[in-house]
């Protein structure tokens, strides 16, 4: 009796796991299929290489793509050094477990803050208080703040997977702490850093809320020439605006095309992160 109960319990759990996975992947696959179906036909060389006209009803999304990449590279430049600093602080300079736990919880809390809150914060601090108006730099800073915990935690996990022997062996040879960090810790956790960074960038590329009133406009901008009053066009905001005009078939078609391009960018960064993620898992299993 107990045997049959155990077997049926196993089957139940297995079925539940399988259904959960199928449901998740099914919804994702359905979404992707819809985007490819609707978006692929709207994308052409002209679409990605020309600027928008007639309020998005015709023309392309060249400056929206450029704007999105400006944001991504700004985030890359801000997040890379800061996340290394935060991860090293968490892993090496916070000496006791309690302070490390508090710090980690703090990072998770930041990670969980809704993106619109970052938008409001950025609006009052940068747009109003600093008087920058809408600026690409504000957008970059806000997106960086959003993904900083993800990248820092990914790097921290990579650092915590480095065998203690490596660090002690290096120290026993007389290497200073900074030499150990540069010769052992950072090279050994590089894969975790890159995978976290790329996943973070993929998330940043698709964010709309923090940019709404801080960095992007719908039309009338190209490549920014300064910081103050230098808004950019971006794909998420472009899609957001066109979707509101979905009663116009041409606007809707362009929105689907933009979604397709944005998904390609996100998938590109996620796919780029995959080998690094696999490598960091391999290193952890050495």
């Amino acid at each position: 009796m107990r045997y049959y109960f155990r077997i049926s319990k196993d089957i139940c759990f297995k079925s539940f796991s399988l259904i959960s996975a199928l449901l998740t992947f099914g919804i994702l696959a359905l979404g992707l299929w819809l985007i490819v179906l609707k978006g692929f036909s709207a994308v052409s060389f002209d679409f990605i290489s020309s600027s928008m006209s007639q309020g998005g009803l015709s023309g392309g999304i060249l400056y929206q793509i450029i704007g999105t990449f400006i944001l991504i590279f700004t985030v890359l430049l801000i997040v890379s050094p800061l996340s290394v600093g935060i991860a090293l602080l968490r892993s090496f300079y916070l000496k006791n477990d309690k302070s490390r736990k508090i710090f980690t919880t703090f990072l998770y809390v930041i990670n969980g803050i809704p993106s619109i809150i970052f938008g409001i914060f950025g609006f009052f601090l940068f747009v109003k208080f600093f008087g920058w108006g809408k600026s690409w730099l504000t957008g970059g800073i806000l997106l960086s703040m959003m993904i900083l915990p993800t990248v820092s935690l990914s790097l921290s996990e990579g650092i915590s997977r480095i065998p203690k022997d490596y660090i002690e062996s290096a120290k026993s040879l007389g290497l200073s702490s900074s030499a150990v960090i540069f010769s052992v810790v950072l090279p050994q956790s590089f894969s975790s850093f890159i995978s976290g960074l790329l996943l973070g960038l993929a998330r940043a590329a698709g964010e709309t809320a923090p940019l709404l009133f801080t960095a992007t406009i719908f039309s009338g901008a190209d490549i920014p020439g300064g910081i103050k009053e230098s808004p950019i066009l971006s794909l998420p905001y472009h899609i957001f605006t066109l979707a509101q005009e979905s009663y116009q078939p041409q606007a809707l078609e362009n929105a689907w095309g933009s979604v397709f391009v944005l998904i390609l960018i996100v998938v590109f960064f996620s796919a780029l992160a995959l080998p690094f993620r696999l490598k960091s898992h391999e290193e952890a299993n050495v």
Partner: peptide
């Protein structure tokens, strides 16, 4: 520390090879 550890070397039980 650097000077001391250079002059008093330590070899561990489990050999550690750097990448």
């Amino acid at each position: 520390l650097n000077e001391l550890r250079r002059k008093i070397g330590l070899v561990f039980q489990k050999p550690c090879v750097f990448p």
